[in-house]
Design a protein around this nucleic acid. Structure first.
Ligand SMILES: [Mn+2]
Ligand SMILES: [Mn+2]
Ligand SMILES: [Zn+2]
Ligand SMILES: [Zn+2]
Lengths: 140, 140
DNA sequence: TAAAACAATGCAATACAATTGCATGCCAGC
DNA sequence: GCTGGCATGCAATTGTATTGCATTGTTTTA
């Protein structure tokens, strides 16, 4: 069986042709993608279908949503531990102000923060903006 | 002299009538406001003028922009140390998933993060989502 | 002071991401 | 092979962010 289809079934997603193609494309990326970037990277695909495909992926723990403050939502593949019950790949996201790319930094864990009493933390997002490795080297 | 006008002049902002009114309104808020919320909270104001007013405030270090992942940009008053050269009030922002309010937590500082070698951090944003004090009490 | 220069405002219009509605297509199970 | 449910494609809508431009208001300077 096609490993892409298997990956979809693992997350209880019906492996349609479109979903296989989108998954294949996403797996090849080194940076998180916006819906528009995803649309441009593929041939003749309907934006709304992509929108719903990504939403299905997100709901089933296959990709996660990244709000990097650039104004558009970006998406990247999840770690294997995520599923329909929730996302568990809580890591830092890095937005490069030079190349505009957003990278997951799964090795860098998010530090604990102490909130005022009464506050209950359910989810923490840490976005670092700056220069990525490639752009930093290019400048110096 | 009007203390509101003085506050504007401190940041080198010409104290027009509209700016005084907007500043007055912002100072009364306990949560960060979106442009739409700001518009609704005032009488007969043009949205674009508000947009440019807020942008002027931001550029001069009077308010700061908060991207809390809710899709809309929110704004809140800065600490006194901010000016046209930059914002220095780097603190955590809390988004309550119940009441949808975004709060500045200026007492809680953002911890240092260690990035992969080569990466250069210029700005760090930490958003915590969960239940604010009021909503947490209301539920339990 | 009056004219000129400049900045701020209001209204119209645009750009674009996100989202919904609905008709049609496709596929699995009966 | 029929049928019900999910997936897809296209049109349309929503809502925020942003720009253009004419007008108004304010400050500078002759
Ligand atoms: Mn990530
Ligand atoms: Mn703040
Ligand atoms: Zn870069
Ligand atoms: Zn709340």
């Amino acid at each position: 069986m096609n490993p892409l289809e298997a990956k979809l079934k693992e997350k209880s997603i019906a492996p349609t042709a479109m979903r296989v193609v989108v998954l294949d494309f996403l797996l090849k990326q080194s940076a998180a993608l916006s819906l528009t970037e995803l649309e441009l990277g593929m041939h003749r695909t309907d934006r709304v279908t992509l929108y719903r495909t990504i939403r299905t992926f997100e709901e089933h723990g296959l990709v996660h949503r990244i709000e990097d403050g650039s104004g558009v939502t970006k998406f990247a593949m999840c770690q294997t531990s995520c599923n329909v019950d929730g996302h568990h790949d809580l890591h830092i996201h890095f937005y490069c102000t030079q190349c505009k790319e957003t990278h997951c930094l799964p090795k860098t864990h998010i530090p604990e923060v102490s909130l005022p009493s009464g506050y209950l933390a359910l989810d923490t997002q840490l976005i670092v903006k700056g220069l990525c490795g490639s752009c930093n080297v290019a400048i110096t």
